[in-house]
């Protein structure tokens, strides 16, 4: 690892001012678990890192709104999110996902904002938060903007964030009436990066699918919403035949990429099976009160 300048601002505004819209060698660092890997392997050689460890504690808080929404500070650690009663009450799928996300030590250190801003298509939380309809609140030199998590990623390890923008909060809308699931497939060992991740949320009305959000990750270049398959699902009865049709549709729709975790044709088959399973889990699981 090479040496670099480490800035440790005390406020978010100072942190933004220390970033550089033009310079790819200047980056923010939150927990650092992902960046350390990139720096150790020489993939990323920074000239300056702007540490967010000492910014205001507001950005680590987790709050539940009176309407049942969630507001999670981007500097909350993944463990904090995992063990938060507020999070569990709104979206239990998040806690279930955390159990198989990396390991205890990494979850203790990695932060939610960094997890999203890293842009790694193998991460578990982007598909889960997207299927919940969550958005990122982003701050930059010219003020704030909101970006749906599903629209945050522009390519392989690429996001729509500008170099001098920071995610400050993640907001999850109320989940009343929805039920969600996330399943992933690891092909080499249980703790491997996934070959495929499928997240779905269903709103069931009188035995039929009123609304649905269906996300695929890891097997595709970036997190992708399976829009055509959602159309296949809307208005259909909640049953095996529907899930099976959706699996076929997703297999045709998803542009999967082969890699060391499986060939494209193998992963396509996984898509068919895992979409069906994820829908079954959400469709037959408990709905949020």
């Amino acid at each position: 690892m090479i040496s670099f300048e480490l800035a440790e601002p005390k406020t978010l505004n100072e942190a933004i001012a220390l970033l550089d819209a033009e310079d790819p060698e200047v980056r923010p660092i939150s927990g650092g678990t992902a960046l350390m890997l990139m720096m150790k392997s020489g993939v990323f050689r920074p000239s300056r890192l702007v540490s967010l460890q000492k910014v205001e504690a507001d950005y680590s808080r987790i709050e539940r709104g009176s309407n049942g929404s969630l507001r999670i500070g981007a500097m909350a650690s993944l463990s904090q999110v995992e063990h938060s009663d507020e999070v569990r009450r709104v979206a239990p799928v998040i806690e279930k996902t955390m159990r198989h996300l990396s390991n205890v030590r990494v979850r203790n250190v990695a932060r939610l904002g960094g997890n999203l801003a890293h842009g790694d298509p193998h991460m578990d939380l982007p598909p889960v938060l997207s299927s919940l309809g969550a958005k990122a609140i982003v701050a930059g030199p010219s003020g704030q903007r909101e970006i749906l998590i599903e629209a945050l990623f522009s390519g392989y390890y690429e996001t729509v964030l500008k170099r001098d923008e920071l995610i400050t909060f993640v907001e999850v809308p109320p989940q009343a009436g929805w039920s969600s699931s996330y399943i992933k497939c690891t092909t080499r060992s249980a703790d491997d990066w996934p070959a495929l991740g499928i997240a779905c949320s269903l709103r069931i009305e009188g035995g039929s699918i009123g609304d649905v959000r269906l996300m695929i990750s890891a097997a595709t270049e970036k997190l992708t919403r399976l829009v055509s398959t959602e159309k296949v699902l809307r208005g259909q009865k909640v049953n095996e035949a529907t899930f099976e049709r959706a699996g076929e549709s997703a297999m045709a729709e998803a542009e999967v990429i082969g890699d060391s975790r499986g060939s494209a044709s193998y992963k396509s088959e996984l898509v068919r099976v895992y979409v069906r399973r994820a829908l079954r889990q959400a469709g037959l699981g408990e709905t949020q009160p």
Partner: peptide
């Protein structure tokens, strides 16, 4: 809390 020392910047 437990951390992985190999991924934890000493300055932190």
């Amino acid at each position: 809390v437990a951390v992985s020392g190999c991924l934890y910047p000493a300055a932190f």
